[in-house]
Nucleic acid binder design. Structure first.
Length: 177
DNA sequence: GGTATGATTGACT
DNA sequence: GTCAATCATACCA
């Protein structure tokens, strides 16, 4: 799933026509203490064990939604967290949903991203290759920076955060350039 | 049934 | 830099 995480950087992701270019992702896999799938299937993470190419959405801190792309590693649940994107389409709707004007603040963080795109728990388990989603692969020349993942309490040393080098749209703890 | 915790964010010192 | 908000989920009894 680290490969998927890298491939997603630079891809264009839209929900109902609203979205942009993915600039930051994180990989969560099997044998990964920080992954929701680590302790086996539960009600929340069931989607992670479902078909690859689905969207895994969960509620975080009782406040935010976080969106992941499901992928499998040897049949075990794995996913890629979408952390940030560069807004390119539907800026107006994003600004209304976020209550902000500043473009770099619209989607620079997993909770912000889902709010701007209108992703909620109702999207959990849906397939990404169907409406309202659109996922356009990145071009061949994507300059990626790898670094430690953000906000986790276990396995914090694994460099499974990937971001677009130099992008101002990545989330707060800026990756080392 | 009860409690601890978190893949975050925004406000405040 | 520090800290509270806020609640679904997971885990334990």
């Amino acid at each position: 799933m680290r490969e998927v995480a890298r491939d997603l950087v630079g891809a264009t992701f839209l929900v109902d026509g609203v979205g942009g270019v993915i600039v930051e992702t994180e990989a969560y896999g099997p044998d990964d203490p920080a992954s929701h799938s680590f302790r086996g299937p539960t009600r929340r993470n069931a989607t992670m064990f479902g078909p690859p190419g689905g969207l895994y959405v969960y509620h975080s801190y009782g406040i935010h939604w976080c969106a992941n792309v499901v992928c499998h590693e040897e049949g075990v649940g794995a996913a890629v967290l979408l952390r940030a994107l560069e807004p390119t389409s539907g800026l107006r709707r994003m600004r209304v949903r976020r209550g902000l004007d500043d473009a770099p603040l619209l989607c620079s963080g997993p909770g912000r991203l889902t709010e701007a795109l209108g992703i909620t728990g109702e999207h959990d388990g849906l397939r990404l290759d169907r409406s309202p989603f659109e996922l356009v692969p990145a071009g061949p020349h994507v300059d990626i920076v790898a670094g430690p993942r953000v906000g986790i309490t276990r396995a914090g040393d694994l460099p499974w955060r990937y971001s677009l080098r130099g992008s101002i749209f990545v989330s707060r703890p800026r990756p080392r350039v």
